[in-house]
Simulated assay, not measured.
Amino acid sequence: MTKGATGSRKVSVDDWIDAGYALLAEAGIEALKLDRLCAHLGVTKGSFYWHFTDMAAYRAALVQAWAELRDRDRSGFGELSGLAPRDRLATMMAALRADRQRALERAMREWARTDPAVADSVRAADHKVVAAVRRAFQDAGFDRDEADMRANATFAAGIGFLHLSDAPSGARLAAQQERFLDVMLAL
């Protein structure tokens, strides 16, 4: 945010998106109210309407920006193919449980339960992750069907870890995930 000549705040679309993410992560979809967003940013409603026609357009921008963020975060998964399958899976799991994403990921999944556009975005991103996990299991020597079953189970467990963990990821969670990989990679 920058200060204008009159001392009023000038916020960008990115500032509004970041504010929405903060409120989503803190209190869920019910927190996405115009008054609350304005208070969070310390600006008036006019600033909101400078960037967005209405709340529906704002929410659509949030979904689009989140999809782009996830795509950027997950784009490196394809580049992991040079790693051993176990190292690749561990790296992907670490990325998916990163502290900066955990609360927002949970909030977006909750929102997806009631909004088809958000559900489509979540589903599309999930398919990319499952495909990368499946490839790692195939590279570990499992046939396509077995790799598919293990990829789906690993992904589901990862979502479970995400929802069961209220605290930042720590040594205990990391150890559990490492043990989980041992189990999933056993022949």
Rank of each mutant, 00 (worst) to 15 (best):
C38A: 04
F161D: 14
T2G: 13
G4Q: 12
R179A: 13
R9F: 11
A25N: 08
R36L: 04
A112F: 06
E30A: 11
G160A: 15
A153D: 11
L62G: 03
V118N: 01
S169P: 09
F155G: 08
A94D: 09
A107E: 03
A90K: 05
Q177G: 09
S8Y: 13
V122I: 10
E68Y: 00
K45M: 07
A60C: 11
D166V: 13
K33F: 00
K128P: 04
I17M: 02
R59W: 06
F142Q: 01
A153L: 10
D14K: 13
D145L: 14
A27V: 08
N152V: 15
L173V: 12
E146G: 06
T2E: 09
S47N: 11
R36E: 09
A186S: 13
T114A: 15
T6L: 12
D14R: 10
L104Y: 01
G78F: 05
E110K: 11
E30R: 05
A39Y: 06
W50V: 15
R113K: 15
D143R: 13
M108T: 03
F155V: 09
V133E: 02
G4I: 10
R144M: 10
G82T: 07
R134M: 06
A90R: 02
M1R: 14
R113Y: 13
G20Q: 00
E68A: 01
R150Y: 04
A124V: 06
W50Y: 15
F48C: 10
T6F: 07
A117I: 08
M108R: 02
V13T: 14
R123F: 14
T91F: 14
G20W: 02
A175H: 09
D73L: 01
A112R: 06
V11M: 01
E68R: 00
F155D: 15
F77I: 02
S121P: 01
H127Y: 07
A67I: 02
E68Q: 01
A95V: 06
E26C: 07
D99E: 15
A153F: 10
S81C: 08
S8G: 08
A19P: 02
L104K: 00
D99G: 06
E79C: 09
M1I: 08
D143V: 07
D14T: 14
G141K: 05
A95D: 10
A151C: 06
A132Y: 01
D18L: 00
L80F: 03
A60N: 13
D139Q: 05
R70K: 11
D71M: 02
R150L: 08
A19C: 06
V122A: 04
G158N: 11
L187N: 12
A175M: 11
R86D: 08
Q101G: 05
P116I: 15
D15I: 06
G82H: 07
R134Q: 13
D14Y: 04
P116W: 11
A153W: 04
A22L: 04
R102E: 05
D120T: 12
Y49N: 08
A151E: 04
L37E: 03
L185R: 01
R100H: 15
D18R: 00
